[in-house]
Design a protein around this nucleic acid. Structure first.
Length: 460
DNA sequence: CGGCGTTAG
DNA sequence: TATTCTAACGCCG
């Protein structure tokens, strides 16, 4: 077996605290120290909470209607999600982080892993503090920085830091005190801090014993409850499980997690942004919809979105899927969900071509008389536009090249105009104009950083 | 290779 | 009244 021992390098995880809430607070400082939540599309579920909102018992993913009472009783500030704002601030955070390393993995909208092999071991803690204060000073976004040998240990460290912060804030919140301590605190565990790189074995065990099995990165609900049923309650118990048992029950990913918890790095940083292998675009309707026309129109908009994404990453796709779903919480148990995948003859990223196919698919799976909650499309069989091997059409010959060339020029202009002059300035008529079915976001804050009309005005 | 199960944010 | 959206990966037959 070709097993190369890799020298351990420090990795940092930067995680923006309650990111969406922090973005809202940035433009509305009165929200600091107050409970704030951000909702999903159609203001359906809670998808982000300030710590204060967590203290009130509002759960992640909870339907808004279920916590409306708490919201009213405690004056919780509520926002529809403002993705344009969050994406813009995320970009800014990432570009600040790039100053601290040349190897950055943007892991999600609010998280990044940084390769810190260029930093002296004794200087790591200071480096973490510096990253934190620069992001806070320049962007006003509070972050957690955690350094360790592996991604999984970074995650674990980050979790503990946040738990400690929450504990302190909760104490103040319940006593009605306002000023929270936002400085990073050294944890009340021997050897534990923002930096656990090179931590002593004995200390690591002690920390692992504090971690509930379900909090480990890579162990979700199902595995957690299975493991608990076997008496495996903490991360410490987990690393002491027999490797073959872990492999059998949790596959190779489980073994990786086990190794990562032992500071043996198995999950590398992904420095380049990989092209997506599938692209989905779908949304729930604000209200259930019965009319095929409405479904077609909504679907056309999602197809347009998906195709834009496809072209942005300079790809083409071979198959187009469409799915529909009625509301599983209604219709007295009559639930209908179906999907259909159709193939293009030749790989394409043309909105117009793909729209035609999607419409055909929807016609086939649409059942009249039902109230639909959701429709969407997915693109598969994705490859690079200029990949070496292309599937051609046997009967089209030379003419095909010309047609494809025309398509790609058309889409090029299409994208150019829409990027310059705004979303859907060029569109297919199938996408419609009235859009009554569109997502409700009544509580959205302004696009402070991406729309001239929404710029904050400051009086001097 | 398609379908299913699991996880993640 | 009301329950997000997207993506990846491993395994199995």
């Amino acid at each position: 077996m070709d097993f190369k021992y890799k020298k351990q390098r420090p990795i940092a995880l930067v995680d923006c605290n309650n990111f969406y809430v922090s973005c809202e607070r940035l433009f509305n400082p009165a929200l600091r120290f107050k409970p704030v939540v951000v909702l999903s599309n159609n203001d359906g579920c809670v998808i982000a909470r300030s710590n204060e909102a967590k203290f009130l018992g509002i759960k992640m993913g909870e339907p808004y209607f279920k916590c409306k009472k708490i919201v009213q009783d405690h004056g919780v500030a509520v926002f529809s999600s403002n993705y344009a704002l969050y994406a813009d601030l995320s970009k800014r955070v990432m570009s600040v982080l790039e100053r601290f390393t040349s190897n950055l993995e943007v892991y999600s909208i609010d998280e990044a892993f940084l390769d810190l092999s260029h930093v002296e071991k004794d200087f790591l803690e200071d480096y973490a503090m510096e990253i934190r204060s620069v992001v806070l000073r320049e962007l006003g976004i509070p972050i957690t920085v955690s350094i360790a040998e592996t991604k999984t240990l970074c995650k674990l460290n980050s979790y503990l830091q946040k738990e400690v912060l929450k504990k302190e804030q909760s104490f103040n919140f319940k006593k009605g005190l306002k000023g929270h301590n936002i400085k990073p605190k050294v944890l009340n565990v021997p050897g534990m801090s923002m930096n656990v790189f090179g931590i002593k074995e004995a200390y690591r065990d002690e920390i692992l014993k504090l971690i509930d099995i379900g909090e480990i990165w890579g162990i979700g609900k199902k595995y957690a409850s299975f493991l608990k049923s076997k008496g495996v309650m903490t991360a410490y118990d987990f690393i002491n499980l027999d490797m073959e048992f872990v492999r059998k029950k949790m596959k190779v990913c489980g073994v990786r997690t086990q190794n990562e918890l032992k500071a043996l790095s198995c999950i590398d940083l992904e420095l380049s942004i990989r092209n997506k292998k599938s692209i989905i675009s779908s949304k729930s309707f604000a209200k259930d919809e019965v009319d095929l026309k409405v479904l077609q129109e909504a679907l056309s908009n999602y197809v347009a979105r998906a195709c834009e994404k496809l072209r942005d990453q300079k790809s083409v796709c071979l198959s187009v899927g469409v799915f529909v779903r009625t509301n599983p919480f209604k219709n007295g148990g009559e639930y209908y969900s179906n999907s259909l995948v159709l193939n293009l003859d030749v790989a394409s990223n043309s909105t117009l071509k793909i729209l035609k196919l999607a419409k055909k698919a929807l016609d086939k799976i649409f059942r009249p008389g039902l109230a639909y909650k959701k429709v969407g499309c997915f693109l598969m069989g994705i490859s690079d536009v200029d990949s070496e091997c292309k599937q051609m059409d046997l009967f089209e010959g030379e003419g095909l090249i010309e047609k494809q060339d025309f398509d790609s020029k058309l889409m090029g202009v299409w994208d150019l105009i829409n990027k310059k002059h705004g979303k859907d300035k060029i569109l297919s008529l199938a996408m419609g104009f009235n859009k009554k079915w569109q997502t409700q976001r009544g509580l959205k804050s302004n696009s402070f950083t991406t729309c001239w009309d929404n710029l904050l005005k400051v009086k001097i």
